[in-house]
Structures are given as structure tokens and as C-alpha cells.
Design a binder for these strands. Structure first.
Lengths: 340, 340
DNA sequence: TTGAAAGCGCTACCAA
DNA sequence: TTGGTAGCGCTTTCAA
């Protein structure tokens, strides 16, 4: 019922090799033969068995993407962009989500290796680098997305997190904030980068970074950070030097921060200005439209997709590529104190 | 460098068949042999080449999912739920997005067929059923998600759209609305189902359905429906019988509707109550927290995933399964006129 | 309990 | 320009 090369060859009284060559657009085939074959393929709706092809060529024209979750829009956007980028190059994309669980992630990577995917793209939530060493060992190219690892010289595509922190903080400073707090994320490169940018911006403007103004978003059971954002903001508001600006690691944390501030009877941005990161959709419909730093997820996905295709099938390991995308500040009401 | 069955067999001085049997947990292998093989596999980090296995077995243990876009949270949630559901069953999921383009969708389906995926899951944006007939022809099981087709007796998993319309409209009626408008979606099953539920609810409560109160969301270039929602609501507000309640096809349209209503100096929900559909994340942080009908995307994904696994490898076509998930009204400020 | 042989559908290589 | 042969890594069948 499913047509094979051999069926077409038999029907037309020619060899499978000839049909195979036509299929792949091989040059040395007679025009007439080519036409006959192509027509029959079309009539029969022939689709080559790509699993069989893979076995011979050692390449599958598939990519594997592992993300912590698709529920967080950033990863959905990246996935969509990769998918769009590789379409038309004959590639297909396996997507699996690790639910932020390092062990599940390692297992997904092993599974994708078994699937012989040409390149693995991973937004990792691991602490250890075992999975990456496994890929190195098997000479499978891989690309880190969003989160990088210290001491691992790998392909990387992500936003320039230090610049994220720098831009967000500088913006608050420009708006007249002087006691700027930072609600930071967990111990991964994105959070440490943003923190560093925050500190540099304070320094550059002669502002002192107060230890009590850097507070960490708990992660336990709070998927997006909304609730934690609320809780830690409450603490910030109670501190001796109440901040007049807060840079939040991500938008959900900022949602929580805004709720906490309004609950306390303070005004945004007059008393406290708030800026988040991620540019979650519809943030301009919020009670207080949220200023944010856009991570340019589409650019990241596009760059990662095309890098993956470039890497696919390269036998020799080439020098890892690092692509840092430039973030962009989106100013809305939550931080706009001095309308021009 | 990549280990094969044969390598292990040679090392241990046994045959590939024996190793293969151990790999698959075949019963008739001696305990000692099994242990030796398993240990060596672990030491070498052996991963079977699944492409080779597929070629023999005719099954790939892969599923293909085609969605219009991952940018719309509903599809991201469904995809995530499918991914979670099939994990641990040894399945991997190809995800591709058609960007709402019927031709691209057809092409993606062909490609997935060539990949020999065991089952195809598709949230279709097609008008024609050619792709589905192709899958039938190749005896590939497929599952329609979210959108069904008239006259196509296929597996289907989705929310009960008629009940969505019924629940939303009934809720508005309970809140005292008497002139209820509906901003409907395009000519696909989801929109027609919700419209039908809307009309039935009006009927059941002795309310007349006014033609001018049913207005269609344009789709051109407005990805989510926000802008169209705004525009058509403006029209509704200008109509002779201004509605006192609006049921919107989806949440973004409702965002637009809310903006239009507030822009016109009217109050929500006092002058006009609004309810959407989809329960987009963070809708409780909006200027006016949005009431909505939750489509239970996780349930849909879970059901679709387990159905897919049940279908995989079934040679004979079995009677199509229809799974209708029950929607759930989420009441927030945009429609709550009579707090208890 | 173990293994030899055959073959899945395709492509690479080389000869005609 | 065409095609025979071999083989990709695995599983299936059946014999030992």
C-alpha cells in the first residue's frame, strides 16, 4: 500500500538505482527517463522512506530541541522561530520539554541521540555537564540556547544577559530612580548575567549596590515566578531603605511585584518604578502596563535554526559559534516617570 | 566512535542476536549473559540506532504534531501536555507549525508521513481534506485536535465548543445581560460550535438573537485578534441596540473589546460585561481581569497523547474515537455584576 | 538458551 | 547514462 522505490522501478522496467537518482536530482539521468519517473512518483504520491535513507547516509535531517517548558512564552517563541527557519530545508524538529527537571533533560538528550538527530539544541536546566560531554563523545553537534555554562566551550545562541541588566537598570536610573533593587533569578547564566549588568550600571552611575536590595526569586513550586515576585517584593518594601525602582528577572516576577506594591498602597511608577524582562504578550493590557526588556526570542530561534543547519553533517568539529542577540527596552507605564 | 550492537557482541564473544534480545528484554536469555551484556552497555553508554530498528519493525515510536502556531498559548499548552504524556513510553514528538497556512500544513503532513511517524496529530487550518485522505490511503492513523471537519469521520480530541458558547452566554445572562453580542471567529468548527452554543443559550432563555449582534472577527494580518476585537467592538457600540454583554471568540479579541469599551467611556462590567475564551495566562492582572471559558488545553493534550499511543501500530483501522473535553467558566471582574 | 541467515528501503561505489 | 552489488544497524525467523 505504501509505495517503494522498487515498485516504481519494476513498473517502469528500470533499476532502483535509476529511480533513486531521479529522486535526489542526480544529474546523469536521461531527460526522458527522468520525466517518466517523476510523473509516476507524482501519480503514486510517492514519499521516500526517510528512515531507510538515514541508515545509509548516517544523517537524518532532523534536529532535536529540548526546552524546560513550552508554557513559558519565551521558549514557545524560540521553538516556533526554529521551526519556521528550518522549514524548506527538509529538516524536521523533535521538541521535548524537560519540565525543568535535570534528570528528565538528560534522558531526553540520550533519547534524541538514539534518534540520530543531526544537531541537538538545548535550553538546559542542568547543573552538570554530563549530557554535553556525551554529545561531544558521540561527535554530535549541539547548540546551547538561552543558558550557557561556565567552562563549556560550546555553540551558544542567546540574548546578551549582561546587556539586559545594564539596559534595564540604566533605564530606571534615567527615570530618576536612585535606590534600585533587583529581584534576581536562580544560579544560571541568565540570572548571573543580568545581575552583573545591573551592578555595572549602578557602578557606572556612581550608585551603591545595596546587598539588601538584591533578593532572590524562590523557585519552589512557583512555575512562573508570580507568587515569589509578590513575596520578595513585600520584603523589599519592608526594608530600611525602601527601593524606588525594581528590576525583575522576568515578567511574571514583575507582575507579582506590581501587585505587592499596589497592595501596599504605593503608586507605580511614582513611588516605585518597575521593569521586567521577557516582554510577555499582552503586557500592555495589564493594570499597570509593564515596561520590560525584550529578549528577541525570534532572532534567537532564527539564529539557532540556521546555525543548526550549518552544523548538521559537519564531520569535523569546528570552532564553536557564540551568537549574542541584542536586547531591547520596551518602555511602558510601569517605569515611565518623565514623559517627554 | 558510536557503539553498535555488533561491537558489544564481538567484545563479549557472543552473537548480535543475543545482544539484541537483551536490549529488548527478551525472556529466553541466561541470567549471566544478560548481566554481562547489560553491564557492558552501561559502560559504553550504548544507545541503539532507532532508525535502523524502524526500518525492520516498520514502526518508529515517533508522533508528529502540526499546529497553526506555537505562539498562541492554547497550542503551546496542548503540545506541552502531549509531550509530557508520551514521555516514558519511548516516543518522541515532531512538532511543526504551519503558520496558519493550509499549503504549508499539507506539506508538513507529507513530510511527517515520509518520516514514518506512527501517528499524526493535527490542529488543522485547512479547508480541504486532501491531506487526511492521503493519511487514510497510507493507513496512517491521525487525530484531529481542536478543529474537526464536517463529513470526515476521524479521531478527534477537543473541547466541546457548543458547550463553550452555551456556558459563556448563560453566564452573561445570569449576570443580568439581556442584549448579548457575539464576536465570532472564522468559518471553522470551533467558531461555528461556539456560535451555536450562544444561540441555543439565548433561545433557552427566551432572548432573541439579533443578527447585528453577531459580528465576525477579521483575520487578515491580525494574528491574535486583538485589533480586530477592538474594531468590531467599536461597531457594536455604535449599533442601534447597544449590547450589554459580549461573548468573544477568544481572549485576545476580548482584550480588544475591553479597550474599545473603556475608550468609549463605558464601564465594565456595569455597562457591558465581557467574557472571552481560552484563559490566557495572567488575565487576572489585566486592567479589567478577564472572565473567560477555559478550554482545558492540558486535558486535550493528555487525551490526544494517550490516544495516539493507543493508535500507534494498530494495523487495522478501528472505529474513530471522539473525545470532547468539558470547558469551564472562569469568572473574573469583566463579567461579575452580582457579587454574592 | 543461543545464533546463522535473511532482509527492512534506501544509497554509495564502481563497472558496464 | 544505467545498473549490479554491497551494506547501513537492527530485528525476525527458524534451526541448532
Amino acid at each position: 500500500m505504501v509505495i517503494r522505490l522498487k515498485d516504481i522501478a519494476n513498473e517502469l522496467g528500470i533499476s532502483v538505482v535509476t529511480v533513486s537518482k531521479v529522486l535526489r536530482g542526480h544529474p546523469d539521468i536521461g531527460a526522458e527517463t527522468r520525466q517518466r519517473v517523476l510523473q509516476r512518483m507524482r501519480e503514486l504520491n510517492y514519499q521516500p522512506n526517510l528512515a531507510a535513507r538515514s541508515l545509509v547516509t548516517g544523517r537524518t535531517s532532523t534536529l532535536g530541541l529540548v526546552v524546560p517548558t513550552l508554557l513559558f512564552p519565551f521558549f514557545a517563541y524560540v521553538a516556533n522561530a526554529i521551526s519556521t527557519e528550518i522549514r524548506g530545508h527538509g529538516y524536521n524538529l523533535f521538541i521535548s520539554s524537560s519540565n525543568e527537571d535535570p534528570d528528565l533533560e538528560a534522558q531526553e538528550i540520550r533519547q534524541l541521540l538514539a534518534r540520530q538527530v543531526d544537531v541537538i539544541l538545548v535550553a538546559s536546566s542542568q547543573k552538570k555537564t554530563d549530557s554535553f560531554l556525551l554529545m561531544e563523545e558521540q561527535h554530535r553537534p549541539y547548540i546551547l540556547i538561552d543558558r550557557s555554562f561556565h567552562g563549556l566551550d560550546a555553540n551558544f545562541v542567546g540574548v546578551d544577559d549582561e546587556m539586559v541588566g545594564w539596559l534595564a537598570t540604566s533605564h530606571l536610573i534615567e527615570q530618576g530612580c536612585r535606590r534600585i533593587a533587583h529581584i534576581r533569578g536562580p544560579e544560571v547564566s541568565t540570572a548571573t548575567g543580568r545581575l552583573k549588568g545591573y551592578e555595572k550600571a549602578l557602578d557606572a552611575h556612581g550608585l551603591k549596590s545595596q546587598p539588601e536590595h538584591i533578593i532572590s526569586l524562590g523557585t519552589s513550586g512557583d512555575h512562573t515566578g508570580e507568587r515569589s515576585g509578590y513575596d520578595v517584593t513585600k520584603k523589599l518594601l519592608a526594608s530600611r531603605h525602601r527601593p524606588d525602582g525594581i528590576f525583575c528577572f522576568n515578567d511574571p516576577a514583575a507582575f507579582g511585584a506590581i501587585r505587592a506594591i499596589l497592595d501596599s498602597g504605593l503608586r507605580i511608577p511614582k513611588d516605585i518604578a518597575v521593569i521586567g524582562c521577557g516582554n510577555i504578550a499582552h503586557s500592555d493590557f495589564l493594570r499597570v502596563p509593564l515596561s520590560t526588556v525584550d529578549q528577541e526570542s525570534e532572532s534567537i530561534g532564527k539564529a539557532a535554526g540556521s546555525l543548526a543547519i550549518a552544523l548538521a553533517g559537519k564531520k569535523t568539529k569546528i570552532k564553536p559559534t557564540k551568537k549574542l542577540v541584542t536586547p531591547r527596552v520596551v518602555v511602558r507605564a510601569s517605569s515611565l516617570r518623565n514623559p517627554k
